[in-house]
Design a protein around this nucleic acid. Structure first.
Lengths: 356, 356
DNA sequence: CTGAAAGCGCTTACAG
DNA sequence: CTGAAAGCGCTTACAG
């Protein structure tokens, strides 16, 4: 005895107008008398009408919608994983006439990001999802034309549709707790803070230090190093060499916290220094190289912010906004993070979604 | 320059028949001349024609498809969480004319499960998803009529479409590792094994014990108790009282591992015994009651098997199978698990999905 | 055995 | 400002 879903026809009938008029108010296309506007809105509410994605998609065959994605391709493995999430969103949205246009950048430079985004805009995107390298007047301008959303990192000033990202302060605190668990709450540790990167990382490190100070009096922060680098390879190598240096400088070091996805390079430094088993690495994300070090115990745990999920969600949300099912309101969506340990991964991180 | 997808019309034109005829061969409805049959098949192949889900779904408004779900409602909070995942699947599939019929059971009895499933079958379901209490001839019989899939727990003998669930042995090993981290690898622990429950739990406990034996020579398993109970409330109370008893019996107990979602009841026993801070609880799943104990540190961590995700996935997969986009092949899909700690949850577990 | 027509719920021109 | 009509790609009666 399912009560059939109300259709646009039902709304039109109840509001005593044509379905054309209902459509106009549904999508704020204007040119509707105030009176009809309100009757329709009342009818929509009364019937709890929700437009059928299906019917809309069928029509949209003609006017396909395009969503642009822009993000850096530094730390390749991290972002590569992300592709899987985007693929999932793509195949789920394809039947609805949505195509995703992707433009990578090879660094965190704001200037290049703007170039990348302009390229997407030139291709006629109807919405933009990006991991900002910073704020820029152009973004604000753009946001007046199409909905734009930030993922992973946020920017303050721009009038955006929404932001999806982790709670970096909390992530940093979690990292501190994991370090403490592995080193039995006391000993010397080193903290590595990547420099050329998204702003959230710094919040993360702050959260880490704060938690250590608050809760772990016997943990000594023996070193805080900033990892610099220009380009991917350089970045990796610096993480590695800084780690080696610090390891040799502090013989009784018990743990290293690396505040982003460079985990495996730090772990490699530990292993190459012959310190596996004595120094544990706590880091972020999950790259293919991490597997080996998780198994050997050199990496104790990794905190995974699930970028695939974030982009996946963002694509679907932005789609809803573009087709008018939801209005852009600058919501801030906080995503949860996962702890990855050797025993945590029975198979690929993204196993759950590869079917769609 | 997207090449437009071929439609049934294109196929009809190429095969020089009507779209009605194309539809007939597409769905083996018979009553087609051999000659046309082959022309259509050739055209389909030549154009690489794939029917549009969207269009099909629009029509299917009339002939809706029903998926039945059957699972126990013991440990309410665990399964309640699950509802959120089912809701997500429901709202995502609704536009495709799919409705989900749910039938709970109040225990893990196989007999009641069969009754429950028969009830669903009587309502004309086109597919079944369930968490089996065991195998039964009826299930095998049913699987010949409609595709059936198992979630969380599996059964061997039945010819099922697929199974989705965690790797319980691995989960048990992970639990052992977490216990070891919290108690600094040595001391007395207790293991609580729920009895009336799904079979995976026993594999879990086995994995736990195996890992302790292998890797933690200084951890002493001072108690292994079986938790029994008839009905939900009884179950909870027994977990609580067994815990209290064991705690008072073993004064230097350092950790309790509870092998399923009764975590909060064990934690309550620890707290009520005045042992918070001395005994850490490692358990499973995440109930609203856990939050308090995670914050206070009585629960160190919980291993979350994400039942919502599992059912969500199962619904979508089974839908694909029912409409013929995928064939049932008995695949075994292993899902990953999450570690939940105080710092892990910025907001509701299911935040990611509530938008859809 | 086969084709033409109606209709699923919506959007998009088009005509008032 | 408003409505009637055409059409998205398919399935389902219906008429030959």
């Amino acid at each position: 005895m399912e009560k059939a879903e109300p259709t646009i026809k039902d709304v039109a009938r109840l509001a005593n107008v044509s379905i054309g008029t209902v459509d106009r108010v549904l999508h704020n296309r204007g040119r509707v008398s105030l009176k009809n506007m309100e009757r329709v809105k009342a009818a929509v509410k009364k019937l709890n009408y929700r437009p059928s994605m299906i019917a809309r998609a069928l029509v949209s065959k003609k006017s396909a919608i395009k969503i642009g994605l822009s993000y850096p391709l530094v730390e390749k493995d991290f972002w590569a994983e992300l592709d899987a999430g985007i693929e999932a969103a793509k195949s789920e949205l394809r039947p609805f006439g949505v195509s995703l246009l992707i433009d990578h950048r090879i660094n965190y430079s704001l200037k290049e990001q703007i170039v990348s985004i302009k390229k997407l805009v030139d291709q006629g995107i109807n919405g933009l999802i990006f991991t900002p390298a910073g704020d820029h007047p152009y973004l604000n301008e753009l946001s007046k034309k199409i909905p734009i959303a930030t993922v992973i990192d946020d920017i303050k000033c721009t009038n955006k549709a929404f932001h999806i990202g982790p709670d970096d302060r909390r992530i940093g605190r979690l990292a501190a707790k994991l370090v403490s668990l592995y080193i039995k709450s006391s000993g010397k540790i080193a903290v590595f803070c990547p420099f050329y990167t998204t702003s959230g990382i710094h919040v993360r490190v702050k959260g880490f230090l704060e938690k250590v100070q608050q809760d772990y009096p016997n943990i000594i922060i023996a070193d805080i190093s900033v990892i610099k680098g220009s380009g991917e390879r350089d970045y990796y190598l610096n993480a590695y060499s800084v780690a080696r240096e610090v390891i040799s400088k502090i013989p009784d070091l018990k743990a290293i916290y690396i505040a982003n996805g460079l985990t495996e390079w730090v772990a490699k430094a530990v292993e190459d220094s012959g310190k596996s088993g004595q120094i544990v690495v706590i880091g972020h994300e999950y790259t293919s190289g991490d597997k080996h070090f998780l198994e050997s115990g050199t990496i104790g745990a990794t905190i995974y912010q699930n970028p695939s999920q974030q982009f996946y969600l963002a694509c679907k949300l932005l789609y809803e906004i573009i087709v008018g099912n939801r209005s852009p309101d600058g919501t801030n969506i906080v995503t949860s993070c996962d702890i990855i340990m050797d025993e945590t991964l029975p198979c690929s991180r993204f196993s759950g979604m590869e079917f769609f």
